[in-house]
Design a binder for these strands. Structure first.
Lengths: 257, 257
DNA sequence: ACAAAAGTGTTCACCTTACACCCATGA
DNA sequence: TCATGGGTGTAAGGTGAACACTTTTGT
């Protein structure tokens, strides 16, 4: 969270550094305990929860802005990030909340202030390893933490819709491209990978068939190690073969579940 | 094409009516003679060809803006239109062309003029029946006509890349959803539909297998009529069953070729 | 009769799906 | 030894690709 003086500067001079009418909202998925988590920030002055978001600096591309915003919230570089939809309805941020956020600092704020304008938002979604993330608040938020995807609080503006669309996009993506590289630790068991798929798709997947399919893709390397301290047969550990993974990401060959 | 006075008004007052830093570019595919065509507009003052595009009025959504722009260029309502990507690099419209377009009218134009700013463009693609279109120029163009997709002229800014990405998105879409509703006349033969698919995908498709697959989708109705005046066996005519077509569009079940 | 393209059927390879069987481990 | 989950195999059904055969029409 920033000081009042800094926030005033941001309100009144922000339009000199950022593109007006444009924002970026990030749907950040994390995976833990066989559950999908979502990273949310609590908006200052109104206490409403929202997607981590931000604006686009005049000297950075939209993709770079999304990466920066995510880096600032999570501490992570090289995040898997995908622009999935534009949210451009007229009324999406025309709510009392918009004014309340800035009026808490400056009651006489001009109606033409850039922060009170209509915002067209670029929706991005990201997949991260929850263990590697240090949730950090930003300029406009006083708290940043993980929420269970199945028990989200009411969200700012149309952010609930954005989350729904992001999940759809994620599932569509999962059916066509390998995913998991960013949500799991470096070494993992086949079951851990399968649980991830089951959680994202919301349905069980046959164990044997999943294993065969994943192995045939050729993006996994079986290690000599096995997971220890388990009360059952020790499973092999795998890791992604980054080179082949990239190949498959770029190819347009789908594989469906 | 508009008068100099109108253009001056647009240059100097446009930012009051349109969202700054935002534009819409439309990749309009048409189908004729087993070839994909692209609708292009010739930019005033510089003679460069470009995608039909425009800006977003403050009182319309981004989707509505795209529809309006397309309606103005083609005369068509209810066009199949899909937002496929955002083009947001810093330098994409930072070229001498940008200045030349406006300086032809006003040599002393302010560098901070909204038209000279960095533009983030929302890429849309559309599929239309070429017979129903009346290409019409707009504010910033002096000509509007169809081009053969395989022989495009050099295009403004990054528009060549936008076209490439649109074609990729179209092919991806074609593999997952029924398409054709908007590119063919109401009644068509199975071969006409197949030619459309072959043209978009850029490769031949087995006749028998295509027919079986399309019919199994259940979105086609075979009519009692046949095509006449052909020098071979008269083929059946089909039309789309709009209701089932919509169902399939909304379902997430893919069908791949 | 012939050329051309429609309409239809058959075969084969492959993939998905469901499910079964045995194995290794710690309690 | 038993419960638990890992590793692997197999049979059934479906799908796509390739291709062949017959039909219809105008010339």
């Amino acid at each position: 969270m920033i000081s009042d003086a800094e926030f005033l500067e941001f309100i009144h001079k922000g339009h000199e550094h950022y593109l007006t009418h444009l924002s970026v909202d990030c749907v950040v998925f994390g995976f833990h305990d066989n559950q999908l988590k979502l990273l949310l920030t609590k908006v200052i002055n109104i206490g409403q929860w929202s997607l981590p978001g931000g604006f686009i600096r005049k000297e950075e591309s939209v993709d770079m802005a999304a990466k920066r915003i995510l880096r600032e919230r999570t501490g992570l570089e090289n995040i898997f990030l995908e622009q999935f939809k534009v949210f451009g309805s007229v009324e999406r941020n025309n709510t009392p909340d918009t004014k309340r956020i800035v009026q808490a600092i400056d009651k006489n704020i001009n109606e033409k202030n850039w922060l009170l304008q209509r915002m067209v938002s670029m929706g991005y979604y990201a997949l991260v390893d929850i263990e590697k993330v240090t949730p950090t608040s930003d300029t406009l938020s006083e708290e940043c933490r993980w929420w269970d995807l199945t028990a989200l609080p009411p969200l700012l503006f149309d952010h609930t819709d954005i989350v729904k669309d992001a999940l759809k996009a994620l599932r569509r993506h999962l059916a066509n491209k390998p995913i998991g590289f960013n949500l799991l630790p470096e070494k993992f068991t086949m079951t851990e990978l399968r649980r991830l798929y089951e959680t994202i798709l919301g349905r069980p997947i046959d164990r044997g068939n999943f294993e065969k399919k994943m192995l045939k893709l050729g993006i996994l390397e079986r290690l000599d190690e096995v997971k220890s301290n388990v009360t059952y047969k020790a499973p092999f550990l795998y890791r992604f073969n980054t080179a082949k993974y990239q190949e498959l990401l770029e190819a347009d060959t789908g594989f469906g579940f």
